[in-house]
Write a protein that binds this DNA or RNA. Structure first.
Lengths: 188, 188
DNA sequence: ATCCTTTGTTGACAGCGTCAACTTAGGAGA
DNA sequence: TCTCCTAAGTTGACGCTGTCAACAAAGGAT
């Protein structure tokens, strides 16, 4: 594995373990086994390293969505699966999740991060489109409806990660919220 | 005005102007005109100062929601007004908004911050309840429906603040998204 | 055989949060 | 009135951080 990839991996590990503040360039470099300035050969600055983590994870999200779309289940069921994955990702890796969706200062990274983020959303919109084609969701313009569901899922996950949403017994608040949204959208 | 309040005000100003990273204890102290260590007489550490900003703003949000509830317009219209205020707050003060809703490390603050956040949400739920009572929204349990709408608005604002949501012409994506949600919820 | 590019190193710097110790002002209690 | 305690503020120091500059080696292309 290249040093660059090692840096990204170890940085993500530190992020999961100790949150944003734990991702110090020196700690990452030490974890990889290089000097404290080696990361600068691969990343312009700390934000660029964080952006690389985000880009990698957005790509994985996109792949997960695309993979889900190919499943056997009913389209609306596949959409629910994808939303479940999304919520689980946010719950299991809250610091990483917030890096992808709520970190300022990462925006200045080259367009490749934005492209990866857009690709993930586009894959998600495909799932919504499939569900619409079976009448399980209203015929609202796909892009807007997908944006609405995406934003709702994000809002639920983010509020839950911040403790601003109480946990219910059994299902997480986010899972319940998404289920309610789909119910209200589909029952009409 | 007490030094403590001055510290909160200047910190919020710096936050608006330069984002989270600009809120350095030394810069805040300098802006107030005290030594670099004076803030420690009023706040345990940097996070405690940030939490104080968040608490103050949550209180203001709660007041805004409560005030809106007393308006003359139809309940569903008052709810839309409140959502408009919320979105505008997030758009005008994105760094502050993210402090309230997406900042880890603030959770460790005493329960008074959580209480203020809950009060804001409770006021919002009151608006939803009023709208339900006129049949403008489905009779889903109020707390869950309010949580859903709240989370959706938050998700839209947060995605927009992070640039992950394209701006439409005229209305912001968040305003459009909320309108679409209410339409889909109410048209059923 | 030479040279340039990539990758890595060491060393330094200012700025940060935080701790410790000292100073001062002002009110409570005698 | 004198004393003393507490709250508020100060100076100085510490280690850690991101980042810059200068140097070293290694390896393929010419």
């Amino acid at each position: 594995m290249s040093t660059r990839e090692n840096l990204i991996t170890q940085a993500a590990l530190l992020l999961d373990k100790g949150g944003d503040a734990a991702v110090t360039l020196r700690a990452v470099a030490h974890a990889v086994g290089v000097s404290h300035n080696a990361p600068y050969r691969h990343f312009k600055d700390r934000n660029a390293l964080l952006a690389a983590i985000a880009e990698r994870d957005f790509r994985m999200l996109a792949l997960a969505f695309e993979g889900t779309r190919l499943g056997d289940a009913e389209p609306i069921q596949r959409l629910k699966e994808a939303l479940g994955l999304f919520i689980q990702y946010g719950r299991d890796y809250p610091a990483r999740y917030r890096l992808l969706f709520s970190d300022p200062g990462i925006g200045a990274a080259g367009g490749s991060l934005e492209a990866a983020a857009l690709k993930a959303f586009t894959a998600f919109a495909g799932l919504v489109e499939d569900a619409q084609s079976t009448g399980a969701l209203p015929p609202t313009p796909t892009r807007e409806l997908a944006g609405l569901i995406y934003a709702t899922a994000h809002g639920l996950v983010d509020l839950q990660a911040g403790g601003r949403m109480r946990e219910q017994k059994g299902l997480s608040a986010a899972e319940q919220g998404v289920a309610l949204l789909l119910l209200l959208l589909g029952a009409s």
